[in-house]
Design a protein around this nucleic acid. Structure first.
Lengths: 224, 224
DNA sequence: TTACTTAGTTGCAATATTAAACAAAGTAGC
DNA sequence: GCTACTTTGTTTAATATTGCAACTAAGTAA
């Protein structure tokens, strides 16, 4: 019986210049050496507890990042996707603020606009498309986008993150109502966004029970 | 490097006596011979185009069923789940009307109530739980439950399927409005449900473009 | 023929969502 | 220091959606 190649791949997403971007790396091995691709690698049964751990390990090794949000996306498989043979990749996606990528100190990480991405090896384009669909879909009913913000942020900032993801303006009152009912944010006592020539905005952060969690319920934070 | 055991498992769901049930089979091999478990099996890279095809094949071989709806659920993995070693199972779920199971002619298929299921080997209990969560969640906004109905059905019948899945009564008017806006059903000209001591109900069927599809968009039929 | 039961529709009340207007709180320019 | 300007955050009004209850329709049973 033929061998099955078992790998994990991670779609690491971030928001830069109001644009959703995917973190890519130049491959240093065959196949497709030198080509930009998703961070990925073989599962190591001897060291990985499961594929989620494998994905976190691969992400850390290749980008230096530990993402609080890392969720399984889907498994892609088949004969055609890898020239080495019948393969299978359990794919995950992660959301982090851009600072996290910058501070991870891996300058070889390239942030490519997620929409209209092309030229990726294997079936990475499909994988990215699936991740985008999932993230945008979840953004329409959950608190997922907070993972693209830093530790503290204002509601207008968070709103603009939602708008960037959904690609359309969202109603201010409805937005605030929704966030309120998710009940995941708390205002930081007395902390305001300063320096702007207008009324300062309240700074918020995730409530403590939602911070630093490594993998959450399938429906994301909040009530979903 | 240790070997990875690659399998597929299928959570085949149906509605019997107003109860959601899972199709199980007694295992005939080690490990857990004689124990009721999900239909599953090894991926055959030489004959399976991908894992979806493998799942369809396994389902057909073990139950005689070809399910129009077969969707990837998630991949379960790790060292602990299979006594033979580090394993990984790409899991799918399928919905069929009970007649399809009966007509498939595999009397060894056992239909066990899905809620409170226990005593399953491997991590099959978690897999079933994940499938139930997915199906119930999707039922709340999509047309997924139509796959539990036969070729033709009345709106009150479909409504009771939704109610069985969601575990609560649904408003008749809202239900009909929602189905209308999915725009996936058509009344069968002049065909009524007869024999009952009350006004006969109109029979409906899926519009042709939604029939016999083997795998659909991630969000199910209709607008979702 | 009358009673009964469920199918399917209609109108209205309750609720939720969106839009518009307003008040609050800062900086910038003169 | 006063005025203009800008964005935050809230309040109020308009609109849309949902859910209930009543009603009509169409069959069988007695």
């Amino acid at each position: 019986m033929a061998e099955i190649i078992c790998t994990v791949d991670v779609v690491l997403l971030t928001l830069l210049d109001g644009q959703l971007r995917v973190a890519l790396l130049r491959r240093d091995h065959e196949p497709f050496p030198g080509v930009l691709a998703l961070p990925g690698g073989y599962i190591h049964p001897d060291q990985d507890g499961d594929t989620q751990v494998a994905a976190a390990r691969v992400l850390l090794e290749k980008t230096g990042i530990v993402s609080p949000y890392l969720e399984q996306l889907a498994t892609f498989s088949g004969r055609g996707r890898d020239p080495r043979g019948w393969s299978l990749s359990i794919c995950y996606y992660a959301l982090v603020p851009t600072e996290v990528i910058r501070l991870a100190g891996h300058p070889e990480v390239v942030l490519v606009p997620a929409d209209g991405i092309a030229g990726l090896p294997f079936d990475h384009q499909q994988i990215v498309a699936a991740a985008l669909e999932r993230v945008r879909n979840k953004s329409s009913y959950s608190s997922l986008p907070v993972y693209l913000c830093g530790d503290t942020f204002t509601l207008p900032q968070l709103q603009s993150v939602y708008e960037a993801l959904l690609g359309e303006p969202v109603n201010k009152v409805s937005f605030r109502r929704k966030i309120e009912e998710f009940d995941i944010l708390e205002p930081i006592e007395g902390a305001m966004e300063t320096g702007k020539a207008h009324r300062p905005a309240q700074l918020y952060r995730l409530k403590s029970r939602y911070r630093n969690r490594l993998s959450l319920t399938d429906r994301g934070l909040g009530t979903g």
